[in-house]
Amino acid sequence: MRPFDYVRPSGLPEATRQARAEGSAFIAGGTNLLDLMKLEVMAPTRLVDINRLDLAECASLPIGGLRIGALVTNSDLAADERVRRDYPLLSRALLAGASGQLRNKATTGGNLLQRTRCYYFYDTSAPCNKREPGSGCSAIGGATRLHAILGASDHCIATHPSDMAVAMQALDAGVEIETVEGITRSVPLSDFYRLPGDTPHIETVLEPGDLITGVVLPAPVKATQIYRKVRDRASYAFALVSAAAVVAVENGTIGSAALAFGGVAPRPWRNHHAELMLAGERPSEKLFEAFADEVLGEARGQGGNDFKIPLLRRTIIATLKQATEESQ
């Protein structure tokens, strides 16, 4: 761990200003950042501690929906009565992640920004384009059990490890961002993460100094919600694949369907185009298969993760089957 400065701003303007300088990083729960700093995978020269900012509240919005403060912990969010009632898949996704101790510290904003678990990102003696732009990708041709089948590039095949973000993606969440100029802007979660392309070190649309202040969930819709996580052990393991589904069936046909997938891509994966295939259709195995094939149309395995393609296909079909049955 390299020596670093530590500041604890008292308000938003100071926080964004302090974080604007190169080498600065915000710290909230620190459950990921501190590990990475100890390994010198990340070496910020200044930590801007936002824990005392007023961002730890979950507020119901007058127009319906919920605004989740960036500092709301994963434990608190999972236990929130409104979340459990109106967005149960979010609660389930949160509880499917990490461990009780980690969830007590981990925050909503931090969860969105956690870094990949790619083995090679964590190994400072191995080239990694995400860690050292231009150095190469060690994962390609290496151990790839964890890696992406969708959205990857020749420069990076890492996956985003969050469960929470997958659920939020299916819920059409928006990310609220405070800029250095003091402007609050909102970005749909589906536009928040950038695909790696040839700049895998740039993971989101955040600009220097930008601070996530909250996540906004739109008003709940009447639908069945499912979060299904497939992993190598029963708890405390990242998803090999996961599926979040918000599906409403009315009069025997699918009214709306939103599906997001984790463990398979550099960001929580959603295919709006494929979802159009479902709306207005009667649920059937054939329909689900066609949907899965559409989602997986561009999927490409790396050897060690080839199994994710049939695994995601089966998981999608089973999740849709369950969701449509429960929704009838």
Binding site: R117, Y119, Y120, Y122, D123, A126, S138, G141, G142, A143, R145, L146, D232, R233, A234, S235, Y236, A237, F238
Partner: peptide
């Protein structure tokens, strides 16, 4: 679950922590 995974090119143990070397947890 348990398996030391080596990089096929370098021999490095890539899953050298408790997050990725999967010992059974209580739920298992």
């Amino acid at each position: 679950t348990e398996e030391l995974i080596h990089d096929p090119r370098t021999g490095a143990i890539v899953n050298r922590d408790f997050a990725e070397y999967h010992l059974p947890v209580n739920a298992d």
